[in-house]
Simulated scan of single mutants.
Amino acid sequence: MNRFVIISGCSGGGKSTLLSELDRRGHGVVEEPGRRIVAEELAGTGDALPWVDTAAFARRAIAMSLRDREEAAKRRGWIFFDRGLIDAAAALEYATRTPVVVNYAAERFFRRIFITPPWREIYVNDADRRHTFQDAVAEYERLLTAFATLDYTVDVLPKIGVAERADIVLEHLRLT
């Protein structure tokens, strides 16, 4: 059984808050590559920022996600990924209009993907999230397509409190 669980969805849907709750409960968590890359790029040249060069950003996210998987393999128990490899591949596919997602079919994660839907009431922009809510909705739809392409089961998490969302994720894992 694969211990790597993806928490995905559009920007501003509550993923990171859910991951913080899972971490608080003692589970392994891998931070979102995108936020780490933005921080590095803002401290450096800024050439691979998503609003400067989406393809370069996505390529960096893919490389970071592959390293994250390698490091996560050294840990025990369920490991929850805040986005990661498939999200990055979907972003590169969108940026280049070239099929990319299928290239990572062999890099399997747990068969169920937990995804946060667009949630206007909690969506906010910040210095690192500059796109609109409509952009986030389009991203969500691309992700649904990417996960379907790789034959994952997608569980859309309800728009409820973070503790209840974490309970749902953990209950699904207990049932496997």
Results as ranks from 00 to 15, higher is better:
Glu141Asn: 12
Val100Ser: 03
Leu92Val: 07
Gly84Leu: 02
Ala106Gln: 14
Ala56Leu: 13
Ser11Asp: 06
Phe133Leu: 00
Val38Glu: 14
Val52Gly: 06
Ser65Gln: 07
Phe4Thr: 00
Ala166Arg: 12
Arg97Asp: 15
Gly46Trp: 15
Phe109Ala: 00
Ser8Gln: 06
Phe109Glu: 10
Arg76Asp: 12
Ala56Tyr: 10
Arg130Trp: 08
Leu92Ala: 02
Phe133Ser: 04
Val100Pro: 03
Glu171Leu: 07
Pro99Lys: 06
Ile6Cys: 07
Arg97Tyr: 14
Arg108Ser: 10
Trp119Cys: 02
Thr98Pro: 03
Arg3Thr: 05
Ile122Gln: 05
Phe114Leu: 01
Leu150Ile: 11
Ala166Phe: 13
Phe4Met: 07
Tyr123Leu: 06
Gly14Pro: 08
Tyr94Arg: 05
Asp68Ala: 07
Arg142His: 15
Arg130Phe: 10
Arg60Pro: 03
Val162Gln: 12
Phe81Leu: 04
Phe81Met: 03
Arg111Cys: 01
Ala166His: 15
Ala63His: 04
Met64Phe: 14
Phe80Gly: 04
Ala63Trp: 06
His131Asn: 09
Thr132Met: 09
Ala106Glu: 14
His131Ile: 06
Ala166Lys: 14
Gln134Phe: 11
Val101Gly: 01
Arg67Trp: 05
Ala89Val: 08
Phe110Trp: 11
Ile86Arg: 00
Ala39Tyr: 15
Tyr104Pro: 00
Phe57Cys: 05
Tyr140Phe: 15
Glu121Lys: 12
Phe114Glu: 01
Ala91Trp: 09
Val5Gly: 06
Asp47Ser: 08
Asp53Asn: 11
Thr145Met: 13
Glu139Ala: 11
Arg24Asn: 02
Glu40Ile: 03
Gly46His: 11
Leu144Cys: 06
Phe114Met: 04
Ile6Gln: 10
Val30Met: 02
Arg59Asp: 13
Thr45Ser: 15
Pro118Gly: 08
Val5Asp: 11
Arg75Gln: 13
Tyr152Gln: 05
Leu92Ser: 03
Ser16His: 04
Glu21Met: 14
Val100Arg: 04
Arg59Lys: 09
Arg3Trp: 08
Asp82His: 02
Gly161Thr: 06
Arg129Lys: 13
Ala56Trp: 10
Ile6Lys: 01
Pro99His: 09
Ile6Pro: 04
Lys74Ile: 05
Leu22His: 09
Phe110Asn: 03
Ser11Phe: 09
Ala72Ser: 05
Gly9Glu: 10
Leu22Tyr: 10
Gly28Thr: 12
Ala106Met: 12
Trp119His: 03
Pro99Cys: 10
Asp151Gly: 05
Phe81Lys: 03
Ile62His: 08
Leu22Gly: 02
Ala88Cys: 00
Ala163Ser: 13
Glu93Cys: 02
